[in-house]
């Protein structure tokens, strides 16, 4: 069970959250005019990144807010947490590990 840092409430166990899939996929404004392929890409295409993945979480059993996170899908470690509407942080701080 992951430990997830809600930007509004702090660190909470994963059980309080619902995963929201890849972040930064905006619903097209001009949906009715979109080509079939473009609409299908919006609906279904995901980066499925192996590595640093920008994703959404919702603190459903808490404040109820959506937020974004960068997580390394090869380790499940979170690298950054940021709010909806903000761009993904470019500078990735590396996690401190100890022996």
């Amino acid at each position: 069970m992951l430990l997830i840092e809600c930007p509004y409430c702090g660190e909470r166990p994963e059980l309080e959250f619902v995963y929201g899939g890849q972040a930064h996929i905006a619903r097209p404004q001009n949906a009715p005019d979109l080509s079939a392929q473009a609409w299908s890409d919006y609906l279904y295409q995901r980066d499925n990144t192996k590595g640093i993945h920008a994703e959404r979480w919702r603190h459903t059993h808490g404040c109820g807010r959506f937020f974004n996170a960068l997580r390394d899908t090869t380790t499940d470690h979170f690298i950054a947490i940021y709010k909806v509407g903000e761009a993904a942080p470019a500078a990735l701080k590396t996690r401190k590990v100890a022996l």
């Binding site: 069970m1 994963e14 192996k50 994703e55 997580r71 899908t73 090869t74 499940d76």
Partner: peptide, 12 residues
């Protein structure tokens, strides 16, 4: 619930 390539999942 989340995508991952770690080949391990949560205890719950």
């Amino acid at each position: 619930a989340y995508t991952s390539y770690t080949q391990r999942g949560g205890l719950h």
